[in-house]
C-alpha cells in the first residue's frame, strides 16, 4: 500500500539497469524503506539498492511480449505492487537506424511495443487491486522530431501518447500515473552523445518524481523549464526548426 505521502511498500522497476530507474528507487527508499524488485535482461548485472528492505533481481525482456503475461502474474502473485517504474529503453544509433530497418524496429519494439505491453499488463492489475502508482519515463524527444534522434523520438512519442491515454483511463481506479518527460539525461546510456541544452541528471529526475508521489495523475518535465521551451519549439515553423 502507498501511504499518505504516496510512499510505496513494494516497488518494481522494469528496466532495472536504467540509471534513472535506480535513482528513482534510491530516492524513494531514502524516504521510507520498501521491498524492491529490479527486473532486467541480465539480472546478475543489476546493482544493489542499499536502503531497500528486501531486494529481488529478476529476468525481464521488454521485447519478449509473449512472456509478459506469466511474468506479471507471478510478480503480482507474490503480493500487491504499489509502484511500478517503467524505465527501460534504448537510444540506438540514428545513423544506423535510418539505413537498417532491423535497427529501427528494435528501438520501436523496446521503447514503444514493449512499453505498451508492459503498461497494459501493469495498469489492469493495479486497477484490479484498486491502488498503485505507475511512473513512465517518456522523453522530450517525443515532443518534436529532430534529425539527430527522430527514430528514438518517434518511439517516445508513441509512448507519450499512450501514457496520456493511460492517465485518462486510470481516473477513478485508484491508480495514479506519473508521466515524466525528461530532457537530455547524463547517464552511461547517453555518454557517447553530445549533451543537449537543458541537460539534467538522473538524481534530478528522481527528485522530481518523489515530489509528485501521492498526487494521482501528474505530468512532470525535468527540468521544469522544458515545458515552455518545448511549447515554443513545437510552435516554430519547420523552416526555422530545420536550421536548429
Amino acid at each position: 500500500m502507498n501511504d499518505a505521502f504516496g510512499l510505496p511498500s513494494r516497488i518494481v522497476v522494469l528496466g532495472g539497469g536504467s540509471e534513472i530507474g535506480q535513482a528513482i528507487v534510491a530516492a524513494i527508499v531514502a524516504e521510507k524503506p520498501a521491498d524492491v524488485v529490479l527486473a532486467g535482461r541480465t539480472p546478475v548485472t543489476l546493482p544493489d539498492v542499499p536502503a531497500a528492505r528486501s531486494l529481488e533481481r529478476i529476468e525481464f525482456d521488454a521485447t519478449a511480449t509473449e512472456s509478459h503475461g506469466a511474468f506479471f502474474d507471478s510478480l503480482f502473485a507474490a503480493g500487491d505492487v504499489d509502484l511500478v517504474v517503467l524505465a527501460f529503453g534504448v537510444v540506438g544509433e540514428q545513423a544506423v537506424a535510418e539505413q537498417d530497418p532491423a535497427a529501427a524496429v528494435e528501438i520501436a519494439m523496446t521503447n514503444y511495443v514493449g512499453a505498451v505491453s508492459s503498461l497494459t499488463h501493469v495498469s489492469t492489475r493495479l486497477a484490479a487491486q484498486g491502488h498503485g502508482t505507475i511512473v513512465v519515463l517518456s522523453s522530450v524527444a517525443g515532443q518534436k522530431a529532430r534529425r539527430s534522434n527522430s527514430v528514438y523520438g518517434s518511439s517516445k512519442a508513441g509512448l507519450d501518447a499512450f501514457t496520456e491515454g493511460l492517465q485518462l483511463a486510470s481516473l477513478g481506479t485508484g491508480v495514479g500515473v506519473i508521466h515524466v518527460r525528461p530532457g537530455f539525461v547524463k547517464t552511461k546510456m547517453t555518454a557517447n552523445l553530445k549533451a543537449a541544452p537543458f541537460a539534467t541528471t538522473a538524481e534530478a529526475v528522481a527528485t522530481a518524481v518523489v515530489a509528485e508521489l501521492g498526487k494521482g495523475n501528474r505530468t512532470v518535465w525535468v527540468p521544469a523549464i522544458l515545458r515552455p521551451v518545448m511549447w515554443l519549439i513545437r510552435a516554430m515553423p519547420p523552416r526555422v526548426l530545420r536550421s536548429l
Binding site: 500500500m1 502507498n2 501511504d3 499518505a4 505521502f5 504516496g6 486497477a127 484498486g130 491502488h131 477513478g172 481506479t173 485508484g174 501521492g214 494521482g216
Partner: peptide
Amino acid sequence: RLLTGWGRTAPSAAE
C-alpha cells in the same frame, strides 16, 4: 468507488 479516509490521502477503489 474510490475511497479515502478523512485525511483524503491514499485513495483506493473498492466494491
